[in-house]
Design a protein around this nucleic acid. Sequence first.
DNA 1: AGTTTATGCAACTTAAAGGTTGCACATAGG
DNA 2: CCTATGTGCAACCTTTAAGTTGCATAAACT
Lengths: 106, 106
Amino acid sequence: MDAPVFVALADPLRRDLLVNLAEHSPKTATQLAAEYPITRQGILKHLNVLEDAGLVAVQQHGREKRYSLTPEPLKDVDAWIKQISAQWDERLLRLKAFIENEPADE
Amino acid sequence: MDAPVFVALADPLRRDLLVNLAEHSPKTATQLAAEYPITRQGILKHLNVLEDAGLVAVQQHGREKRYSLTPEPLKDVDAWIKQISAQWDERLLRLKAFIENEPADE
DNA sequence: AGTTTATGCAACTTAAAGGTTGCACATAGG
DNA sequence: CCTATGTGCAACCTTTAAGTTGCATAAACT
């Protein structure tokens, strides 16, 4: 399972950046820095983490770099959640069946 | 949006613990430590993070503490993903509509 | 040409995360 | 009772993450 997307989502500022970009892509690091209480370099580090996870893509436009949301990797997270949920549900069913067949004694 | 569950999922060992518990709950920290290359105390720290996120529950049994999966908080993650995806999709639709009405010039 | 304004690189500080060790305490079992 | 085994607490080490500052470079604009 692809790790970097989970790491990317762990930080609240990065999640906020994703929501922001979902609504207002594309934006430059400088524009984003103006909206947040941290410096452009700080924003840039977060954007790099997001880019490594494939959650944003960059597009050069003259001298500026515009960042846009690319939400595909979120599917990996969704798939992981579905997998573990399914595993759990199946387990519960087996447990239930077991209990119903074997009238417990403790 | 509930932060601790995102943090909990960021670590690969913690994700592995969840999968493990999905299949083999409940287990004690000592049992788990035997299956992983780290110490019981290390496992315990991860279990505490998972517990803070509401992803595992503990049940005392004599002198031992048994950890079980409680996957409900994963719904929050799922909801967050769905929300941002919906936001993005709607945005794309608006953009598409805009382009189709306004034959571009750059 | 000269001045803005945006990005790029890199060093540095601080705080937190992951993991260890050591020991104290409690309970199960001969 | 005594011993083995499981848990609890806390200090400690090391690495990484988050954020900053400073300066260099490159492209727009007048």
